[in-house]
Design a protein around this nucleic acid. Structure first.
Lengths: 343, 343
DNA sequence: ACCAGCACTTAAAGCGCTTTAAATTGTCCT
DNA sequence: AGGACAATTTAAAGCGCTTTAAGTGCTGGT
């Protein structure tokens, strides 16, 4: 008679196996078992085999809480992510593999409407994360700096003026610059920019647009339409253009969402893209990859950013680096189907 | 002179404050501090205030690993999620609030290309999750049942035939049925369905379509085009229709992605939606909400599913429920702009 | 003055693991 | 046989917290 049924989950009697149970089964000390299971050299081959067998038989699984406590190391990197962001999803994916390679694990804490950065970070800390990787943090620089005083913080994707903490990001101005270069190369001159509101990133991208235009001697053509991060903003901007005296030959939007809005509004109005007007986004969103949009955009190399973030954390933790470091990656233009020579 | 600088993160000397540090500062035992901090009645108001003050001064933050170990309770619900899925994102958001209400915390483990369900679940277990909430698990039913024997498992969003574990899902067949009802109500008769491949969910939705068509005496009109979960499949299906002798008046797709594909292909071919053909998706994705698509679809009430999942977990953990339970919610038709009376 | 009863407090025993120092065993010389 | 030394193994001391049983004072009643 076993005790399945009413006692199933209460584990009537036999709870989750402990190190001690494995040890008893083999007839060695818990110390030996611990050594074997962690792959520490020392135990003889014979014990090794027997312990491994017993552990497997019992379905033993280490208890992280206990080992963290005992070793004073959690080997955990805390990651704050906006779970709604496809870009963050991509970053997390690469963070996982990067962390695994250096023997760390990830613990995620997500931002939601009712869960602010403060809460997310506290959760991460409660798990004893050894370093915090914050994806697109919006907290003020000094708050981040204060946090960094307790635990190494790596900010990803956001510029932080002469920061005391590590930063990994791409050069947003450069990205937009590449877009403008590409368009000018195609022969465009009337290139409008749909803005992304205030915020560090929006500022950088807008600057990138202005700088690049001037670099090409197109000072006169600089034209920035107000907007934000949404598709609606893109539509609004496009309608504004459509109601104007003449259309520009190219529109660059703050991000893909906004670009999609522009695209949809233009198409609906019968304006051919890229036949009549070229449209470019930013972020290389899942959205932009949809074949029905096939949007030319800029990719932020999630993989490289993830790798750099983990490296930064490891340097802090295992190599005693103490000087803050900023890694600025170059974004990459992704040519798809919404850009062409002007008509 | 403080020890910032080279010793910053190594916490030269003063490490993360412990309960003992708070206790010493106030001059009471750690027991009292623990009591106060957890809000357990007992300590006098005077001690309470002093402890709270001291804890705040020191920036004390409880160490989850230690308290889990000591209390033999982690009060943690392990959630397996596909971080790329917008729907999962929504679920997680609601899971957070639901869990918080009943005093539990969430720990997330994500699926990626290199991280399978097995790994994800092991991580969750290593954190000592008391129950596992698996979003859209694809493991075979018996593997899930085996897992459920060790720790309560709640499967969300997927039907599991006479399962031994808890299931929370929506009635997919009903959802598609509602779509067909709506279309028939508008006067449609030639309603084509673009399939979602094999898999439990696809099967249910296809069945829902067939059943509903028959219910309306449209047996003759039943027409299922092969497809899968992608936008490309939708495009392919649409092109197939366009190349046929005559277009149906309505197309129902397995999901929003696929529907978007249909929509794009039709629009590009100059077919007015919903003027000439109505298109409906499924999932109420972020995608479908974009105003440029404004797709009529079916919503799976993330909030309610999340709530039910947490409730199920709590019943298992705190109320000793042992009989498996299946909660089947009714999906809700979301009328947007891609359906209209047939021309 | 004495004690029951109440309101607080706290000592101490773990939780399941890691880690260090010490013990044990075996091996190989001399 | 005796001992040095290397190879294994293990006893035991925590890690930072919770929890329970056992105090410690006080109050008020008699």
């Amino acid at each position: 008679m076993d005790d399945s049924g009413s006692m199933r989950h209460r584990n009537g009697g036999h709870k989750r196996p402990r190190l001690e149970d494995v040890a008893a089964r083999v007839g060695v000390s818990t110390a030996s078992v611990s050594l074997v299971l962690r792959g520490v050299p020392g135990p003889s081959e014979r014990t090794r085999q027997r312990v491994l067998k017993a552990a497997a038989d019992l379905g033993y699984q280490v208890d992280r809480t206990a080992s963290t406590l005992a070793s004073r190391r959690s080997r955990l990197l805390g990651v704050m992510v906006d779970i709604r962001s496809p870009f963050h999803a991509e970053l997390v994916e690469h963070l996982h593999t990067a962390a695994e390679e250096v023997g760390y694990d990830l613990v995620l804490s997500t931002l939601t409407r009712t869960r602010d950065e403060q809460t997310a970070v506290e959760t991460l800390l409660a798990f004893r994360s050894e370093a915090l990787i914050l994806l697109g943090p919006t907290s003020p620089a000094d708050a981040l700096a204060a946090l960094d005083n307790k635990t190494p913080v790596i900010a990803v994707g956001r510029r932080i003026a002469d920061s005391a903490l590590d930063v990994v990001r791409t050069a947003d101005d450069d990205g937009v610059g590449q877009i403008v270069d590409h368009l000018v190369g195609l022969g465009h001159r009337e290139i409008v920019y749909v803005d992304g509101g205030k915020g560090v990133i929006a500022t950088d991208r807008r600057r990138g647009y202005r700088t690049a235009m001037r670099r090409h001697g197109l000072d006169e053509q600089i034209r920035v339409l107000t907007g934000d991060q949404t598709e609606a903003a893109g539509e609004r901007a496009a309608r504004h253009l459509l109601s104007g005296p003449r259309l520009p030959t190219a529109v660059v939007a703050f991000n893909d969402q906004s670009a999609i809005g522009v695209l949809a509004a233009l198409t609906r109005a019968g304006v051919a893209v890229p036949g009549r007007v070229s449209v470019v986004g930013y972020d290389d969103d899942t959205l932009s990859r949809l074949s029905c949009f096939n949007l030319t955009t800029v990719s932020q190399s999630a993989q490289e950013q993830a790798r750099q973030a983990v490296t930064a954390a490891v340097e802090r933790l295992d190599r005693d680096r103490t000087e803050p470091r900023e890694v600025v990656l170059t974004p990459r233009l992704v040519l798809r189907g919404t850009t062409a020579e002007p008509a």
